[in-house]
Structures are given as C-alpha cells and as structure tokens.
C-alpha cells in the first residue's frame, strides 16, 4: 500500500470521480429500465395478467420480506441513483460551462445529436419521471385513478393526447440518452478500448432501440386498439 500525505482531492472532488458516480448510477437506472420495460409488455396478455403482475411486485420476496418491502427497497435505490446522477451532472455541467467562458465566433456543429442533447435530454427525463409518478404511481393526474387496476390506469393515460405526447417524447429522449450514456459509462469505468469500441457502440444502440421500442409499444397498442 502506497501511503502518502496527499494534496490530491478525494474521489468526489475529482471530475473523474463524479463521472464514475454518474456512470454507476446511470447503469443502475438502466438495469431497472430493462426490467421495467419487459414487465410493461405483460399488458399484451390482458387485464388479469397485467394487474396480477402489478400486485406481485408488492409481494416479491415474501415471506422473508414484508408486503411492499422489496418494492420500497427498489424505490429507495432508484431515488438515490436519480439524485446522484442529477447532482453529478449538474456540478460537472457547471464546471464544463465555466471552462469555456469565451465562445468561438466561428460556430460549427460539434459531436453527434445524442451527445449534444445529453443535458437537455436528462432534464426532459427528470421532468418526465415526476409526471410519470403522479400519473401511474400516485394516480394524482390519472383519468381512471383506481389503485390495483394498473391496466385500466395505463389505458386511461394513453387515451389522452397529452399522455401519449409526453410519454413518446420522453421515450425518444431516453433512447438518445442511453445511446451516448451507456457507451460513455463504459469509457468512464475504464472498460472501453479500441478493440471493444464497436461492440460497446452496438450494445449502446441496441439497448437504446430496445428500450424506446419496448416502452413506446404500449401507447401505440392503446392508440391502435390492440390494448383497450
């Protein structure tokens, strides 16, 4: 062990440390989203199966876990991940903007669309999470709003034009965010290399497409009457 009186800043003080926090919290949320998306597809198997699945989510881990304990554990981890992700993003963004106080006179388009929209995309997703919780968790803004009737609540949401617009815009933003975010997380965690670059980019694009198509299939199914 190398021990020294160091002036080197700690993990969280470093830009690389903050990026690591952002990468790990992002991957936690990404893992959750894949499971969430697959669970959503149960809506194609009818009211009973979907509502049964929604109820099962509250009983996961019983009898070791009490009713809803597992669900609350997941919620706590997710809130921590969202906060860690947002705080590191905010602090790094402020630093990045301050590092270029004078802009170039000759402007040109830099980097890909997904890369340029990470910050605004993240803000859109943050706002969407608030709307989504009010809509389908607390049911505050839901048109049906009956606890235990998840299927009917989802159909109610996607029977309104604004419900569809908000959801689809957010899911497209999610796709772009994951496209650059997953690959970036790999670089930040030191997994990226020239040899793995193509595989990581393919995985990032695949995940982004899978999530967006999977999530958007539900409102499209309600709009087209496949789910009603």
């Amino acid at each position: 062990m190398d021990r020294r009186p160091s002036k080197t800043p700690g993990f969280w003080e470093s830009t690389v440390g903050k990026k690591t926090v952002m990468a790990v919290s992002g991957l936690v949320m990404l893992l959750y989203l894949v499971v969430h998306m697959l669970g959503n597809l149960k809506i194609f198997f009818g009211t009973d199966e979907f509502n049964g699945y929604a109820h099962w989510l509250r009983t996961v881990g019983e009898p070791f876990m009490h009713y809803e304990w597992t669900l609350w554990l997941v919620r706590i981890v997710l809130v921590l991940a969202v906060v860690a992700h947002a705080v590191s993003a905010y602090q790094l963004s402020r630093r990045d903007i301050n590092a270029r106080p004078t802009k170039y006179v000759h402007k040109r388009k830099r980097a890909s669309y997904a890369t340029r929209t990470m910050r605004w995309g993240g803000i859109i997703l943050g706002l969407f999470i608030v709307w989504h919780l009010l809509d389908l968790t607390t049911l505050t803004v839901n048109e049906h709003a009956v606890h235990g009737e998840a299927y009917q609540n989802v159909v109610a949401t996607f029977s309104t034009w604004y419900g569809n617009v908000i959801y689809i815009v957010a899911m497209v933003a999610l796709g772009f965010h994951v496209r650059h975010g997953f690959w970036s997380a790999a670089q930040t965690l030191g997994v990226g290399s020239a040899a793995r670059d193509r595989a990581l980019k393919t995985a990032a694009n695949g995940l982004a497409l899978l999530l967006t198509v999977g999530f958007v299939s539900v409102p499209v199914a309600v709009m087209t009457g496949v789910v009603s």
């Binding site: 590092a99 270029r100 890369t115 690959w183 970036s184």
Partner: peptide, 9 residues
C-alpha cells in the same frame, strides 16, 4: 479549471 469529459470525441 479545465472542464470534465463528456466523450464527444
């Protein structure tokens, strides 16, 4: 005071 990396390339 350099900024952080956002892997724009």
């Amino acid at each position: 005071g350099f900024g952080g990396c956002t892997l724009t390339g």
